[in-house]
Amino acid sequence: MAFPIANGEVGAMISSLKTGVQPDAPGNKRRTGFTLIEMLVVLAIVALLLTIALPRYFGSLDRSKDVALQENLQVLRVTLDKYYADKGNYPDTLEALVEQKYLRAVPTDPVTESTTTWVLISSTDPDVQGIVDVKSGAIGQTKDGRQYESF
């Protein structure tokens, strides 16, 4: 006994038996894309994750600026001491450190994002001339309450 079903239709019949829906029956539309409810649920989850992550991200940016400021000040102070040990006097400007190849470039103050806002501290000893220390020219305070000028 022969069945009047072609080979291509066997797979369609098997899938319709599993799902209960005939794939090519008139009136059946295939579902494509996402529904509005599914999209709203996904957007709500993304919004929830952003409300948790963004405050931490911006807080870490502020802390990283404080750490970078401390590191740049440490580099400048050590370089000033090396210059003094080599030359016997302190430089008149920070650019002199670059000219004499002690630094490749004047470090940027990460809070003010400028190389020109450093506060240069001159020596109080009349026998010693030049810049003996550097402080940040930023206004305000760090996350832990210290003033930028006190670094």
Rank of each mutant, 00 (worst) to 15 (best):
P4S: 01
N7M: 07
N7F: 04
E9K: 00
A12C: 00
A12Q: 07
I14V: 14
G20W: 05
V21K: 10
V21H: 06
Q22H: 06
A25R: 12
A25S: 11
P26N: 09
R30N: 13
F34Q: 13
V42I: 11
L50S: 10
L50P: 01
I52E: 05
P55C: 09
Y57T: 12
Y57G: 08
F58Y: 13
G59L: 08
L61Q: 15
R63G: 07
S64V: 08
S64I: 08
D66T: 09
D66N: 11
L69C: 06
L69F: 04
Q70A: 15
N72D: 11
N72A: 15
L73D: 03
V75K: 12
V75M: 14
L80E: 02
Y83F: 15
D86W: 03
D92G: 10
E95W: 05
V98Q: 02
E99D: 15
E99K: 10
Y102E: 04
L103F: 08
V106A: 05
D109N: 15
E113Y: 00
S114I: 08
S114L: 10
T117A: 13
V119W: 01
V119C: 03
S123K: 06
T124E: 13
P126S: 10
P126H: 00
P126W: 01
Q129S: 14
Q129N: 11
G130M: 02
I131K: 01
D133V: 01
V134E: 02
K135Y: 10
K135T: 14
S136A: 12
I139M: 07
D144M: 08
G145Y: 04
G145E: 05
R146F: 09
R146M: 09
Q147K: 14
E149F: 09
S150R: 07
